[in-house]
């Protein structure tokens, strides 16, 4: 690459004049991102609209897995695998446990949506319109350069995490311990010595 081409690319990246990178000539990464994004968005919409509770949890798996693929396309490999391990592996399983422990109906449940559904639809549509308008207006000409080494490989993420972010990491471990103890205390049955509150079934 000549010096002129390098300066042109850097000028296009910094100054935001991206005539060479139009929306009408997408690259392979953009096409893949768009297709996976459509699948993710569709799965998310089905998650919040379906009337079958277990299906909502299973469509959530599709949405979260699609987001993991988006992280891979953004070269954040470690976060993609953490997403698969924690969200798809444990959070959805916890949600399914919660659905079964609260004896959720397996088939269709007509009362999955509350009465303020049109208000929620209006609020969500207004928020989506405002956010998409602002975001597109602000970042229409901004281009992510994905060339070079992956920016989220395990090597990079591990060295950054344990070199610059050690203190938040340790604080987070204390928070996880507190959450563990709190979950055990909350889910434990009432002790025998104390009188049970009303309606203890």
């Amino acid at each position: 690459m000549t010096f002129a081409a390098a300066t042109a690319v850097s000028a296009a990246k910094t100054a935001g004049t991206a005539e060479t990178h139009g929306f009408l000539s997408p690259t392979g990464v953009e096409i893949a991102f768009l297709l996976v994004g459509l699948v993710t968005l569709g799965a998310a919409v089905i998650t919040v609209t379906t009337r079958q509770l277990v299906h909502a949890a299973l469509w959530l798996v599709v949405a979260l897995g699609g987001l993991a693929v988006e992280y891979l396309l953004l070269t954040a490999e470690f976060i993609a695998w953490v997403q698969v391990l924690i969200y798809v592996g444990s959070v959805v399983v916890l949600l399914l446990f919660g659905l079964m422990l609260t004896r959720a109906p397996i088939g269709r449940s007509p009362d999955a949506d509350s009465g303020n559904r049109p208000v929620a639809l209006a609020v969500a549509a207004a928020a989506a319109a405002a956010l998409v308008w602002v975001v597109v207006d602000a970042f229409r000409t901004t281009v992510i350069d994905l060339d070079g080494a992956a920016q989220g490989s395990t090597d990079v993420t591990g060295s950054v995490l344990f070199r610059h972010w050690v203190l938040p990491f340790e604080a987070l471990s204390v928070l996880l311990l507190a959450a563990l103890v709190g979950a055990i205390v909350l889910s434990r049955k009432t002790a025998k010595g104390t009188p049970a509150p009303e309606g203890d079934r």
Partner: peptide
């Protein structure tokens, strides 16, 4: 290889609004 920042930003905004609808409805 490049990727417009608008794609992930718009997808994130739409996903957030889908979650907002779910929380409210």
């Amino acid at each position: 290889m490049h990727l417009h920042l608008a794609y992930p930003a718009v997808l994130a905004a739409l996903l957030f609004c889908v979650g907002l609808y779910g929380v409210l409805a």
